[in-house]
Design a protein around this nucleic acid. Sequence first.
RNA 1: GGGUAGGUUGAGCAGGUGGUGAGCUCCGCUGACUGUAGAUCAGCCGUCUUUCGACUGUGGGGGUUCGAUUCCCUCCCUGCCCA
Length: 344
Amino acid sequence: MPVGTQATVKALTPGDLRAAGAQMILGNTYHLNLRPTAERIARLGGLHRFMSWDGPILTDSGGFQVFSLADLRRVDDDGVTFISHLDGSTHRLTPERSMEIQALLGSDVAMAFDQLVDPGLPSHEVEEAMERTHRWADRSLAARGRPDQAVFGIVQGGVDPSLRRRSAARIAGLPFDGIAVGGLSVGESKAEMAATLDVVATALGDDPRPRYLMGVGSPVDFFTAVEHGIDLFDCVLPTRVARTGQVWTDAGRLNLRNSALQDDPGPLDPTCACEACRNHSRAYLAHLFRARELLAYRLASVHNVTWTLELLRRLRASLRDGSFDTLAASVRAAFSRGSASTRA
RNA sequence: GGGUAGGUUGAGCAGGUGGUGAGCUCCGCUGACUGUAGAUCAGCCGUCUUUCGACUGUGGGGGUUCGAUUCCCUCCCUGCCCA
């Protein structure tokens, strides 16, 4: 799922997303409720109509903002009070209010309200946030607003195996429509992420519900996660990294601001069929970024989203024809080195 | 020709009224980004050195002085005003 926090996958139109092969996108409870407000979106016909996206939408509950906006909120057992980064006004988010907002937005999948913490915190703090997330999971389910909206629960517990085991069992014991793994890709090592996914996979066993790894990932992370049974992802990287001048290709990452690319007449990736690769050169993109032309952000985002979704298509195909390990190895090799443009 | 204001590291500036000028913003170079407070942020950006550090640099030349960006002489260049 490309991430469209504020009712837009930044720099892309719904048409761009469809052309890139996007099936489902993500929206955000906290940000949309602050502006333009959930009630306004509801009056305007819901998030799908508001942003003109007719595919599935998953809404994050605001749990991530408990982490990313840590300086602007206060957590208690009942919920979280935020001080708006926009105007300083206070806003209260509880499991019930989060579910209500997500119902107003009309997303297809709502996420339980959770508390994400830095896994490096003292273990009693990680445990406390996990236990709170569990209680909030109960309340989120009890508050689900519409029968046509799926609700996913979120496993927390940092990178502590025993906490993760407990959390996975606890969340899987509830009648959620899907199980999410939260609290990863927030600064822990690759090894810690893999180990944590392993613990969760074991704890979930043959539970048939879809498994969603929140906030991941990088091209390499997809393979690690799928090896541990993950089905669904969301990540800001393809679009954020694109806006900051980096594109992903089969040969690895390419920093479009590297001076060498100013004279490169080739496409970003010769195997990619996106609008940017079909019509424009690396030199042109390098120029657009230097000139800070708006088209730079759209073309780079079109490419990264297209390339990433195509990579996942190839990943799925490789699972069917047995070439998963080969594909994983080639992607890991391409992305283990620095920028492709500055490699010797 | 006379007057006047200037000339600082790629560009634009700050500073400095005899006691160590490497400070800022651009530009440029490189890197980072994982449920988006991000078209953002960080480092570097005179020379040598990986670092520490050393050295050079205030238009040119000369002078005074222990010491000159500062004072004096002269020349060059630029803007503006007058003739």
